[in-house]
Design a protein around this nucleic acid. Sequence first.
DNA 1: AGCGTTCCCTAACAAGTGTTTGGTAGGTTA
DNA 2: TAACCTACCAAACACTTGTTAGGGAACGCT
Lengths: 203, 203
Amino acid sequence: MSTKKKPQVTPTPERRQELLATAAEVFAAHGYNATTVRRIADEAGMLAGSLYYHFDSKESMIDEILSTFLDELWQGYDTVLAARLGPRETIEALVTESFREIDRHRPAVAIYQKESKHLATQPRFAYLADSQTKFEEAWLGTLERGVAEGAFRDDLDIRLTYRFVRDTVWVAASWYRPGGHHSPEEIARQYLSMVLDGIALRT
Amino acid sequence: MSTKKKPQVTPTPERRQELLATAAEVFAAHGYNATTVRRIADEAGMLAGSLYYHFDSKESMIDEILSTFLDELWQGYDTVLAARLGPRETIEALVTESFREIDRHRPAVAIYQKESKHLATQPRFAYLADSQTKFEEAWLGTLERGVAEGAFRDDLDIRLTYRFVRDTVWVAASWYRPGGHHSPEEIARQYLSMVLDGIALRT
DNA sequence: AGCGTTCCCTAACAAGTGTTTGGTAGGTTA
DNA sequence: TAACCTACCAAACACTTGTTAGGGAACGCT
């Protein structure tokens, strides 16, 4: 006699994840506001109202998409930061980790890029602003440490450098396609090579 | 007796430009779809319906904003390309010109970044796709020439390099504020320094 | 067989959307 | 003065939006 509970048709939590994945895909492709719940439902093979059995609003969908992404992102970042590597090695590890996250959560990253700016003003999405602050502390701090320790140039505006590095990494989500002939690690390696050493030939 | 035609209250073409400027500001801040015509009218100090005296649709507003921006952009780019400078000097001139355009058309650039991807699919905005093609030809061609002539490194994926340079320049529109303590030329200088020589200290 | 649960459908709601129509105050022109 | 044009308002239009309420089919459990 088996006590294994065989699920009925499709188990609850997995179906929820499926729906969130398709929703994220549509949000990323067309933008949050331009995406109707009917469009999401259509893509999932059901009617608009049926979505409200799983979620209580359209807003809670994007909320869950972004928060689970950020949770996983910070899990990776915190591991890197806890290792207390040198500045250059920390930057390398953060960039590599970022491309891995883009590989795993491409739609979520794309949504984050497009929508976080105006979502962060709403109280419900206060964690977006918090995350951005932590983000800036981690990167800017590492860069400053690198300048102090002689790993990075000291003739550059440090905030400009921060935005430069940050943006170069994350905009990749707009063109990156998982399953291409570049692995996240390979892309990270080339990006780091460009950011650290430049694209000009050394003479 | 003067034959100068003194304009009535406010001259037609200038009022049109004013309205387009406020519309661009709102589009850039909140996104095209999330922006209602009532919001634009409100910002301009009039009612929603009154906008339709100047424009025949919301779509034609963003159309005019984007097309005039791209016209001016290509005027600058074509001038640079016609000078037939060396690869490195061409890249430098293109980047500098780009930051000048961001300085002059920040809202338009921000709108372009956010909306062009899905607007380009509509026939009305086919010029967006055309522009992107020309854009890629200009940059990618210059980079390839630079590799061939020994100005740029040959151990990098050239398409990756292209996207890297392109993105680093244009995402600046998301945080750039005209009137800050960095002129477009100064920002371009630092960006070029980072892109060409990297942020690591040379040993 | 009966009951409960899961998951979706049907049908509607109220609010908000872009847009249109007719009107009108105030200036210019004849 | 009269006709005219510019630039706006007031009010409504058809439609789309996110969301809700009630119902019902399929399945597991007792």
